[in-house]
Design a protein around this nucleic acid. Structure first.
Lengths: 114, 114
DNA sequence: TAAAAGAGATACCAAATGGTATCATATATA
DNA sequence: TATATATGATACCATTTGGTATCTCTTTTA
């Protein structure tokens, strides 16, 4: 029943890890490359990467002696979706537009009951 | 430059606190009322509420001897917006629908260039 | 093959976290 | 006024967290 993914939420709680994700959005990177963007030891960065991996927010490909860290953006989607529950409270305008999206979407899928 | 709000991200990292937000979305509640929904002491719940308050995700109104905790849904918006950066990576379909939304939106606002 | 480079594995540390228990304070209410 | 109720405030505890330092292992490369 728990929407989203606890490990992902946990991973996103730290600002360094969010920054790492933004960097990995630009390009895949080795641990050392990620570390070069921060004032942190490589070991510290590796810990962050491990937590991001546990949240499935990144995947890792071993290539020779290197570990290529790669963003897994789809893992962010369920987290983002958790927030959609609260759309109803945000602005009415957004809510209205989302209904339009639903309607539009149903043209390519089977109609939903709402 | 830091999009979103660190205190809010931190507050959302804990599953109990996310559950509390869902409850408060239903109705405003006193500390004791919130606590009645969990197998936690009132003190523990109060700590969570304090962290949610620090993240500005809830506001508190003192009424007599009671403290009414109220959801502040707008505070979730900047956090949700942080994820929008990654929209570009999600599925093309969503991306397409969002363009449709933009187009639709422009009917009620001034026209956009797309 | 020897040396350098990238990463893994531990061990360690201070601070933050999530929780409890206990006592104090303020406010309704019988 | 006495008492019950709702909350506040501490103090305490075990675990997690974010970080460093150090040593080892593996893979390149001179």
């Amino acid at each position: 029943m728990e929407l989203g993914n606890q490990q992902a939420f946990r991973a996103l709680a730290d600002p360094s890890r969010r920054a790492i994700l933004r960097h990995l959005a630009e390009q895949d990177m080795t641990i050392a490359e990620v570390a070069s963007n921060f004032e942190m030891t490589r070991a510290a960065v590796k810990k962050h990467l491990k937590i991001l991996e546990e949240g499935k927010l990144i995947s890792v490909e071993t290539r020779g002696r290197e570990r290529i860290n790669k963003l897994e953006p789809m893992a962010l989607k369920p987290v983002s979706d958790w927030f959609n529950f609260f759309n109803q409270f945000w602005d009415k305008r957004l809510s209205t537009l989302e209904k339009a999206v639903e309607t539009h979407a149903s043209q390519n899928n089977k109609p939903t009951k709402n």
